[in-house]
Design a binder for these strands. Structure first.
Lengths: 336, 336
DNA sequence: ATGAAAGCGCTAACAC
DNA sequence: GTGTTAGCGCTTTCAT
């Protein structure tokens, strides 16, 4: 059997309470005793039993993180930030890759209820805001990334969709474009909606008319982008630039253009969002918006751990992370 | 305070032992009692406390997985397999992204010692085989992916580096190549070594001489591949094809070729390993070897959980996962 | 088939 | 500054 605290206590000639105090850096231990105990701990290779500690202290030093798919660089980067920050605070991280299954997500949430987890990070969750708020009402510590949930005690890390989308429009206008199409993702995604909003605000700022026939939906994936672009072209609406709500759809646009013989950027400027690695390798390089994903992960953990420590949220509830427009060949061309 | 097993017992008019039996699907409970207890559990929304359960049963239903970097599709896919399989068996997964820090890796291993984890999966670990074997000697459940550790009780999931490398050579020979260069990763990496071995065996099989001046090291990254290719060319060794130990270095070769005006595949055939997504988008498409990463993750968890259940390893200790050669434009050209 | 009771290994309130 | 001790909430003999 393993060594337990009483074994250490016996060998060090003190009580288990004193050993516990040493382990938990309690003030009330003389330097001499502390030294002695530490020495015995090292000698015996003692490791405090986590389950016993958790049971007694009603804490686990563990948080969960739920992502739709871990094998997607966007989420993997966020998870990295979560793990790194948690590790720095001696917290463990249990992951859940839901594969877009609401059921699996809800199943995982039970780890909060059965006290396997001190807190939970939801990255673009499938659950409704009501469900999330309900958990927070029950005083569970929740943090959300990529969506804004209206609840006093829920910190949210979001991106500045509206602001960078306006920036994209400004950039295109500056290059001489006046007819800019927009490809959204699924209609009900917040990111989609907010990027559309930013696009519209950008147009207004530059006194450009909003033309509904220049809006299409591409479901956030490559094929969807391809098909949306085909529909747009067939409509003969006339546009010289396209802003796609993510890089994936931009790839679909590239694909469509190569089939249709449309030259990028001379005949069509393209700007995406996500700064996927591929964008740097395709020709021409894809202009895009870069979001500091790892930092987003770190930020939400910071908020969550503070909430855990002080029993309530501290500081700003909503953390908006600034993104950066990266201009590459696909939109870096002046038209007259 | 939360509801505990005694509350359920009281309300159901039974003892806590009976409730526990129901929860753990023990045979010795009458159908009637079981039904009644289940009903009360549901009514009260009872959730068994994990820490108490863990403490009492000396198990955690949790495994750890250590990867060098989670934000790398190769490892992310493996983690996905690990998580999916674990979830299917009601196990939780704690991740550790070491960022190639041996220290962090060793720190994480302590979770095994302090009983936070029932088992641990090491993906291309930094630790020495000795360290890993030592843990296994102490009867901790360990699984290794991407490296073969010689220990009775350690299951290993590895790829068929030698065999697919031979296949790559055969493919190139079939296209008419007789002077094939090889770019290895870091010299001490097993993958590097085995791929080199397969390359050499492939040459022998086709009665081609081994020419040491055609071997270079590119550190598994893009820049390294670029520099290695430059050295190779400067050497004027004369070769018409190059096999790089991963796709990353192949990208470096593309880069070098574009600077040097070498046409792929007409003047140089290129084959990589990993089937990174980028390979499909660059021009010409990169021939590569695809490894079923998610399946590797599932496989090691399967082994590990079986080992946990039966207290010892069952079935094959070494699982070799078959890879697939994907031929794209970069090598699909016959030379005379 | 069910209940009583003894811990699992630790922490913290209380006593000295 | 240190020791004693009572649990944390569950599982599992051992009775019955």
């Amino acid at each position: 059997m393993d060594i337990k605290i009483l074994d250490v206590a016996a060998k060090a000639g003190v009580s288990s309470a004193t050993v516990s105090r040493v382990l938990n850096n309690n003030e009330n231990v003389s330097a001499r005793t502390k030294f002695k105990v530490m020495q015995v701990i090292r000698e015996m290779g003692y490791q405090p039993n986590t389950a016993a500690k958790n049971l007694r202290s009603q804490k686990t030093s563990t948080i969960g993180v739920i992502v739709p798919e871990i094998n997607n660089s966007y989420f993997a980067e966020i998870v990295k930030g979560v793990e790194n920050k948690a590790y720095a605070s001696k917290f463990k991280v249990i992951i859940c890759d839901t594969e877009n299954s609401l059921e699996k997500e809800q199943e995982f949430v039970k780890l909060l209820l059965n006290k396997s987890l001190d807190g939970l990070v939801l990255v673009t969750p499938l659950m409704t805001n009501e469900e999330i708020c309900h958990l927070a009402d029950l005083h569970y510590a929740i943090g959300v990334v990529g969506r804004c949930v209206e609840h006093e005690q829920i910190p949210c890390v979001v991106t500045d969709n509206v602001s960078f989308s306006k920036e994209v429009v400004s950039h295109l206008v500056e290059r001489g474009h006046r007819h800019i199409a927009f490809l959204s993702g699924y209609a009900d995604a917040v990111d989609s909606y907010e990027r559309l909003e930013g696009y519209l605000k950008g147009l207004r700022e530059h006194h450009l008319p909003f033309r509904p026939e220049l809006i299409e939906n591409g479901n956030f994936n490559e094929r969807g982008g391809y098909e949306a672009m085909m529909r747009l072209v067939k409509r003969q609406a006339g546009f010289t630039a396209i802003y796609t709500a993510n890089d994936e759809m931009a790839l679909g646009v590239y694909w469509a253009c190569s089939e249709l013989g449309i030259r990028i950027p001379e005949q069509l400027a393209v700007v995406g969002v996500d700064n996927q690695r591929i964008g740097r390798y395709i020709t021409p390089g894809l202009s895009t918006v870069s979001q500091p994903k790892t930092r987003m992960g770190r930020a939400i953990v910071e908020k969550l751990l503070a909430r855990l420590e002080h029993q309530e949220l501290v500081g700003e509830r909503i953390v908006m992370i600034q993104s950066e427009l990266i201009i590459r060949g696909s939109s870096n061309h002046y038209i007259c």
